[in-house]
Design a protein around this nucleic acid. Structure first.
Lengths: 228, 228
DNA sequence: CTAAAAAGTTAGCTTTGACTAACAAAATAA
DNA sequence: TTATTTTGTTAGTCAAAGCTAACTTTTTAG
């Protein structure tokens, strides 16, 4: 019998906070995530975040000391991973079956991830034949909450002459996603780094016989696997 | 340009009330629907219903006079029909693609019907090739909110000797739906009324070479089309 | 090492949508 | 027609989740 002290009757807000905290924590393991970061990430006031963190602490999803850094309990992490699983499965469904584009899926998936039914999500998973990655290239956790973590290599971190494959993109911004598809990049595109301009770190790349120059900021949001 | 005074930014609760009122109103056109009925239907206190009705009146979705009966404006009806469309499309999806049974769909569809995205629902409709009826046999309104109203003939209203076809069932209760499928009845089943027992109006029926006796209450919840 | 800035906390208010209790109007029955 | 029951309304509370303003602690910079 698994430890079911927390009967996951969480509100939408509680879920949002747990997921946000999880994302902030994995973004950079070593750095302190505090109340203010969490507030900023969710676009709420520090007071609101403080309030909610208190509640989640009381419910044993979050660990923290006064004025200290925030952490998630195993149960907190499990909730977040379940949400991420749902989010990514829905995104996959929207793209593959309902003609949604890269940049349209996020907003709707934000809503769908809060639907409470494990049967629903597990059947959706089965219906799509257990996809491993979502349309942005992110790994989808399985029904047990297991998932492989890919070390994130950004396009901007590679030296001139590298050849790499587009594995994922940061799906934080609609304008970015639109840009990516407009220039013709897609998941699995092979990218060669022709030149890195010293002045502003902008990068000349070639893919599918197209040459383009992209900014450092752009390259920071593109995750790749090194081929050679 | 269609009249877009009401920017449909309704809360889940507001939507629930509008849908509930719509359902109560079409159930029996002639009878007065008041605040208390609405409250009872939604399992909330009369005070809560009163409160919400006031708000929906202010937003021009509902018409009523103090101590008078409740009505929906065209916009109110449109919201309700959109919800019903979403609900029935999701139910259809759950049954046809995600292995949900008759009695499992309702609860999840209650949640899914509140997802805000017209693209989502219209694409889902297209994906399923524009189904006309949901798994309970109810007509699904189209994207414009049009739908045909079938006069509801209950199994209990037919005389002995009638032969009819099961068109829909009242999906209000899980136990009822389970019962229906357990005895082997399904949509489109042909049913012959062998005998109506005077004492308690229970009905002996035959379908798919099965004979069963069902109660008046049961027959009240089964909607049919007369064949002969 | 102190002073200013940043981060975290608290108190108190707002809105939404529930609730109960008390009261008013309508409908029904005697 | 009057009395009772049903129905509808109002007032006042509560919890969730947000906010601002004020305050405290920690961090950082001079």
């Amino acid at each position: 019998m698994t430890n079911k002290i927390n009967m996951h009757n969480l509100t939408k807000s509680e879920e949002d906070y747990l997921k946000a905290l999880f994302q902030l924590l994995i973004e950079d393991e070593s750095i302190k995530v505090g109340n203010n970061q969490l507030a900023e990430y969710l676009a709420v006031s520090p007071a609101s975040a403080n309030n909610m963190v208190k509640k989640l602490k009381a419910k044993s999803y979050v660990i923290s000391e006064k004025y200290g850094k925030l952490e998630l309990t195993d149960e907190g992490k499990a909730v977040a991973v379940r949400l991420i699983r749902k989010h990514r499965l829905w995104e996959t469904f929207l793209c593959k079956y309902l003609n949604f584009t890269w940049d349209e899926v996020h907003e709707v998936a934000e809503q769908l991830e809060h639907i409470k039914s494990s049967k629903l999500i597990d059947e959706l998973d089965r219906f799509m034949d257990f996809p491993e990655r979502d349309p942005h290239g992110e790994v989808i956790p399985n029904a047990k909450g297991e998932y492989s973590i890919q070390p994130k290599i950004t396009l901007s971190s590679l030296p001139q002459g590298s050849i790499c494959k587009l594995m994922a993109v940061n799906d934080g911004s609609v304008t970015f996603l639109k840009y990516v598809s407009e220039i013709g990049l897609a998941l699995s595109s092979e990218i060669e780094i022709i030149e890195i301009r010293e002045f502003d770190k902008s990068i000349r790349i070639r893919f599918n016989a197209i040459e383009e120059t992209v900014s450092k900021k752009f390259a920071d949001n593109v995750f790749v696997k090194l081929i050679e």
